[in-house]
Computed example of a mutant assay.
Amino acid sequence: MAIKPHRRYSAEEKAQLLEIVQQAQERTGQPVEEILTQLDLPSATYYRWKSRAREGCLADRVVVPRRRAPLPTPEEVVAVCAFARAHPRMGYKRLTWQMVDQDVVYLRPYQVYHILQEYDLLCQRQPPPPESLKRPREPDHPDEVWHIDLMYLYIPPRWYYLVDILDSYSRFLVHWRLNLTMHAETVTLTVQEALEQLPERRSGEPKLVHDWGSQFLSAEWRAFVTGAGVTDIKTRVAHPESNGRLERLHRTHREEGFSEEDLSAYHKALDAMAHWSDYYNYERPHSALKYLCPIDYYRDDPEARLAERQRKLAQALESRRAYWEGVYGC
Rank of each mutant, 00 (worst) to 15 (best):
M1P: 11
S10Q: 07
A15K: 15
V21L: 04
T28Q: 10
I35G: 05
T37D: 15
Q38D: 10
L39W: 11
L41I: 15
Y46C: 03
Y47C: 03
R54W: 09
C57I: 09
A59C: 08
V62H: 15
P65M: 02
E76G: 06
V78G: 01
A84V: 01
A84I: 04
P88S: 01
R94T: 02
L95M: 08
T96I: 06
V105P: 06
Q111I: 11
H114R: 05
D120N: 14
R125N: 08
P130G: 08
R135A: 09
P136M: 02
E138D: 11
H141F: 11
P142V: 08
P142N: 03
P142K: 04
E144V: 01
E144I: 00
P156V: 03
L162I: 06
S168C: 02
R171H: 09
L178I: 06
T181L: 00
M182G: 01
T188E: 06
L189K: 06
L195K: 06
E196H: 15
E200V: 08
S203P: 03
G204W: 03
P206I: 00
K207A: 14
L208K: 07
D211G: 04
W212R: 15
T226L: 10
D232M: 02
A238V: 07
P240N: 10
E241R: 15
R251L: 08
F258M: 02
F258L: 11
S264D: 14
S264R: 12
Y266E: 06
Y266W: 13
K268V: 04
A269H: 05
L270E: 09
D271R: 14
A272D: 12
E283I: 00
H286R: 05
Y298K: 03
P302I: 06
R309L: 13
R309D: 10
Q315D: 05
E318D: 07
V327E: 13
C330D: 00
